[in-house]
């Protein structure tokens, strides 16, 4: 019998601890597939965040460093500056990347560090049980915005792709969504392009992935995935924001 679908080689056999409908499992798989296709498993170093994805070190078979909350781009900088030939990526959630680690995020981009940042935006702090994140949408109810986020007292949601588009050090920025098959395929293409840019052009890339968090949104997986395509994609438009390498090639 011919195998037509299997787990990527660079993903371990450990069952994911993620909730049903969560985007992390899908994104881990995409990263695993890309690492396999590029033949980089032995050469990749991942930096995982504080948050639901901290246990990424149990799922990825490459070498992994767990970073302090928000510091993944700084840790990845330390690794990559020592080992410029390795493929180095950080994997970060919205609280990690756009709140406590905003400075690390922006300055790694400004330096054009030769790393890839994978940004999981699910508009909420997942691991701590559903508090307001820097990307929580206006009106969204969370544990710490029980009446819905009021932007005039609690701030407006940050659009990180748009912010980082102002930074000259960046080579490639794309925002994708983990909702439909078409979007998931586009997300994989974006991750692959970012890794190739890192390997071949020494480029800093930033891939934002809109993901569902059904548990903390108080929705079924189906409702949550629908929200990604509707409400979230409206505030955080999908698409390529910067692609300096691709456009140079044209």
């Amino acid at each position: 019998m011919k195998t037509i679908y299997k787990k990527p080689e660079s993903i371990s056999d450990k069952p994911f601890h993620y909730c049903p409908g969560c985007g992390h499992g899908v994104v881990h798989r995409l990263i695993g597939e890309v690492i396999d296709e590029l033949g980089e498993e032995k050469n990749t170093i991942a930096v995982v965040p504080v948050g639901c994805a901290v246990m990424g070190y149990d799922y990825l078979k490459c070498d992994v460093l767990e970073a302090a909350h928000g510091r993944a781009p700084a840790v990845a900088t330390g690794v990559k500056r020592c080992l410029p030939d390795r493929l180095v990526f950080s994997y970060q959630g919205d609280g990690d990347l756009a709140a406590i680690g905003t400075a690390e995020t922006i300055h790694a981009a400004a330096r054009g560090e030769n790393i890839t940042v994978i940004f999981i935006n699910n508009t909420i702090y997942g691991m701590t049980g559903g508090q307001m994140a820097p990307t929580t949408l206006c009106g969204q109810v969370t544990q710490t915005s029980p009446c819905g986020r009021d932007p005039y007292t609690q701030g407006f949601p940050l659009r990180m792709c748009e912010i980082l588009s102002q930074v000259d050090g960046v080579s490639y920025i794309e925002r994708c969504a983990i909702d439909t098959v078409q979007h998931i395929n586009a997300a994989k293409k974006a991750i692959k392009k970012a890794f190739i840019y890192q390997r071949e052009h020494g480029a800093y890339s930033f891939i934002e992935l809109l993901c569902a968090c059904p548990t903390n949104w108080g929705m079924t997986p189906a409702q949550a995935i629908e929200r990604v395509g509707r409400e979230m994609s409206e505030y955080f438009p999908l698409g390529v924001y910067i692609d300096k390498i691709g456009s140079c090639g044209r």
Partner: peptide, 25 residues
């Protein structure tokens, strides 16, 4: 490699990365 970090927090976390990769830092 000399790198001026954006803060002491970043600097020490860069140290964590380089030390974790096995280098004197």
């Amino acid at each position: 490699v000399f790198l001026q970090a954006e803060s002491e927090i970043s600097a020490i976390n860069m140290v964590y990365g380089a030390a974790g990769a096995g280098f004197r830092v």
